[in-house]
Design a binder for these strands. Structure first.
Lengths: 252, 252
DNA sequence: CGTTTAATTGAAAGCAGTCAAACTATGTGG
DNA sequence: CCACATAGTTTGACTGCTTTCAATTAAACG
């Protein structure tokens, strides 16, 4: 956790190392990547649907989302991203970006040319493995989101998002027992959950009134984590955190 | 299209070749994989949530789906698979299967040990590339499904599925201008679209009454493809078929 | 401070769900 | 070849969760 002199590429290295054990050579290769850091304001676009992918961005600070818009202008948030998440491994080998990526908060992004990442993957199996795992976990999360939006009512759906976010934040050391600040408006929560902001509001207050969560501004904490997880029908298998934790232990 | 003597692994080879140009050596390596063919009856499980992944299955004939169940027993179908689709590249590098895979119809599946595929990927960049593309396209489809379920009403949602399925079937040569037979009951359609079978029925009949689709049993054909695509807000970018087509042209 | 954005609340409307029943197709055994 | 069973489709009436519309309050920001 020394910080100022740290290479921005350490963010990427840490994430990949969490997914597969990397050799010193692998690490060195990652740290030798050409990288630039960009500071972004809230709601800034990182990727736009339809454009050809040219670089890969990793979130160094702040929060981001991926979203798609329908013809009628309705927005569906299809993923949330936090510290260390790569933002366009999802189009690493595709010829067009199929969704938009946008910051939720002010954020810093480490940018690496796509070709450089591709080369790394081609020559270093361990890195290929780690990137692969990252992509697979994201895919798993979006399957769970389908279940969440498709098969749970507003209460369960919201509770599920709160549980997922808590667990992912905790895995990055960004949340503790006192909860976390959720980096989105109730309207954005609605866009992620396919609810209106009005109903998100009512549902949040209902969970609060039930006494299972507490809120202070956008800070969420759990009065009874177990209760919320039961309401959410939450089982964390789909996050595949064990794999990461195991790899972390190995490489630690 | 010579058929009887054909190796079941040609199914896999064709699919991968459609995603990235493969050398003769790559092809030979694929065809040398240890493979077994299994015949499955309708509704047979191919993968179960929670079990450790041990092999990779490719659909040789028939149709399959991936689904997850909630605690309350509601089912959400999160993906549909047709000829040539690999069924568990989604857990190729994960330690637990996070969803169920099940046949829709009678089907044949080519089964390859996971370790063998992993080795191939490690030693052959072109194959790694092709498998990666497959996984990324699946992820893209599930993002579009999130939009579909989250942001379109029953009419648009159903129309969208009909368009997507038509296009994917056509890409595999399984559907022509006379439409295609959709390999699922209205209840299963409902499980894929987050609708009840009752409402799927009403919506299908409405589309038929509108005069934009025709139905004979489970055979669907389009009276006006353009109209249906407009209703569905369908734009095929997310299927990333261009990449496949390009690669096919190159390798043809 | 004034202005804008976000959160909150109430009342009414609507899309899809639920429940229940009839109808059709398919398949099986006698 | 028919009677029966089973699975799937179709239809109607009613209910309800969520949306829509509208207005108010609170918070954030320059």
């Amino acid at each position: 956790m020394t910080d100022l002199s740290i290479s921005p590429l350490m963010i990427l290295a840490r994430r990949l190392q969490a997914q597969a054990p990397l050799s010193h050579d692998d690490l060195a290769a990652i740290l030798a990547l050409p990288a630039t850091v960009r500071k972004l304001r809230p709601a800034a676009y990182i990727l736009r649907e339809g454009e050809p992918p040219t670089y890969c961005a990793i979130l160094k600070s702040g929060f981001a989302m991926r979203q798609k818009l329908t013809q009628e202008g309705a927005r569906q948030i299809v993923a949330l991203n936090i510290l260390g998440d790569p933002l366009d491994c999802q189009t690493l080998y595709l010829d067009a970006v199929d969704h938009n990526a946008q910051t939720l908060t002010a954020a810093e992004v480490v940018t690496v040319p796509r070709a450089a990442i591709q080369q790394l993957i081609e020559h270093r199996p361990a890195i290929a493995h780690a990137v692969f795992v990252n992509v697979l976990i994201e895919a798993s999360i979006s399957r769970e989101w389908l279940v969440n939006i498709g098969r749970r009512d507003a209460r369960g759906r919201l509770a599920h998002l709160l549980c997922e976010f808590a667990m992912r934040m905790e895995a990055q050391g960004l949340a503790g027992p006192d909860g976390y600040e959720i980096p989105m408006t109730q309207e954005q929560l609605g866009d992620a959950l396919s609810l209106t902001s009005v109903h998100v509001n009512r549902t949040l207050r209902a969970l609060e009134a039930e006494g299972v969560i507490r809120r202070t501004g956008r800070r969420i904490s759990f009065e009874s984590r177990t209760q919320v997880e039961r309401i959410a029908d939450f089982s964390p298998l789909y996050l595949h955190l064990d794999a990461s934790r195991q790899a972390e232990r190995i490489s630690a």
